[in-house]
C-alpha cells in the first residue's frame, strides 16, 4: 500500500520524505476491533512520516479512525499490525513499563479539555512533566519560568485550574507538554473546548512552539481553521489515508481554502455513501 493516497479532486503536493530521518514513522498500521464474525477496521493500513520540526494536522470525519491512530502513536493503545517508530524506536514492541518511561521522555500531550490536575497550581501542573522524569528541582523552577514567559502564562503559575480561563488552561497544558523537551507533541482536538478567540490564541501558541522552540507537533482535529495553522494536513477516511495538503508557499487563506475543499469532498462522499 502506498504511503500517501492521492485523489484527483484535490491539489496534491507529492510524497513526504524529508532529508533527515523522521521523528515519527507510521508504517502500514492496522487496528482491528471485533471478533471473527464482524471484523471492523478502525485503521486499515496507514503509513506516513513526520519530520523533525514539522507541524502536522490529521483531519477526518467522526469514525475515520483519527483518535485510534493518535492513541496508537501515543502508546496508549497498540496497533493490530504494522510498526510505529518514534525517534527510531519501535513502540509497538515495547513492554508496558518501558512505554511509561518512553511517554514521559519522548512525548508531550495536549488534550481537548486541557486535563490539568485541579488540585495542583499551574506551576505544579507544568512541573509534573519534569518531576516524573526525575529532573533536579533547581532546574525545574528555572525551566518553568522560561516556558511560562514564552507562552505568556506567568500569571497562571500560582493559580489553580479552577481560577483560570479556558485559554489559560490550554496554554498551561501546552507548557506542560513542551517543558520536558519531548521529541513529539501530540495534540488531541486542542481547540475543541474553546471559544473562537481562545482557540486562535491556542493555535498561535502551538504555532509558536513549532516555530520558535522547534517542536514537532502532531495535531488531531476536525476543525479546518485549526488545521490551517499546520505545515501539512493528512486526511483520514474509513481508516485509510485519503489525501494530503502542504501549506508550502500558500497563504493561510489559500491553505484554508484547500483544506475546505477536501473537507467538503469528504463530507459529500460520506453523503453519497449513506
Amino acid at each position: 500500500m502506498p504511503e500517501v493516497i492521492t485523489t484527483p479532486s484535490a491539489n496534491v503536493t507529492g510524497s513526504v520524505r524529508s532529508a533527515s530521518s523522521p521523528i515519527l514513522s507510521v508504517r502500514n498500521v492496522e487496528k482491528v476491533f471485533g471478533g471473527r464474525q464482524n471484523l471492523m477496521y478502525a485503521l486499515a493500513g496507514v503509513g506516513f512520516d513526520v519530520a523533525r520540526g514539522e507541524f502536522v494536522a490529521i483531519m477526518g470525519p467522526s469514525g475515520s479512525g483519527k483518535t485510534t491512530l493518535l492513541n496508537c502513536i501515543s502508546t496508549i493503545d497498540r496497533p493490530s499490525s504494522g510498526r510505529i517508530l518514534i525517534n527510531d524506536s519501535d513502540i509497538t514492541t515495547m513492554s508496558k513499563s518501558k512505554l511509561s518511561a518512553f511517554r514521559r521522555d519522548e512525548l508531550g500531550f495536549i488534550f481537548q479539555d486541557s486535563n490539568l490536575l485541579d488540585t495542583l497550581t499551574g506551576m505544579e501542573n507544568i512541573a509534573l512533566a519534569l518531576t516524573i522524569k526525575g529532573a533536579r528541582p533547581a532546574i525545574i523552577t528555572q525551566r518553568i519560568e522560561d516556558i511560562a514567559r514564552t507562552l505568556n502564562v506567568t500569571d497562571s503559575l500560582k493559580q489553580y485550574p479552577g481560577q483560570m480561563s479556558g485559554g489559560q488552561k490550554q496554554r498551561v497544558a501546552a507548557a506542560r507538554a513542551i517543558v520536558a523537551d519531548p521529541s513529539l507533541i501530540l495534540a488531541d482536538e486542542p481547540t475543541g473546548a474553546l471559544d473562537s478567540r481562545n482557540a486562535t490564541i491556542m493555535l498561535e501558541t502551538l504555532s509558536m512552539l513549532n516555530k520558535s522552540l522547534n517542536a514537532t507537533i502532531l495535531m488531531v482535529t476536525h476543525d479546518a481553521y485549526a488545521a490551517s495553522f499546520s505545515d501539512r494536513v493528512l486526511f483520514l477516511s474509513d481508516g485509510k489515508l485519503f489525501n494530503e495538503i502542504r501549506q508550502g508557499s500558500l497563504t493561510r487563506e489559500e491553505y484554508f481554502a484547500r483544506i475546505m475543499e477536501v473537507v467538503t469532498f469528504l463530507g459529500g462522499e460520506a453523503y453519497h455513501a449513506a
Partner: peptide, 11 residues
C-alpha cells in the same frame, strides 16, 4: 522546592 518537586510529591 528541593524536597517538594520530586516525582509525584506535589500530587
Amino acid at each position: 522546592r528541593g524536597v517538594y518537586l520530586k516525582r509525584l510529591r506535589p500530587f
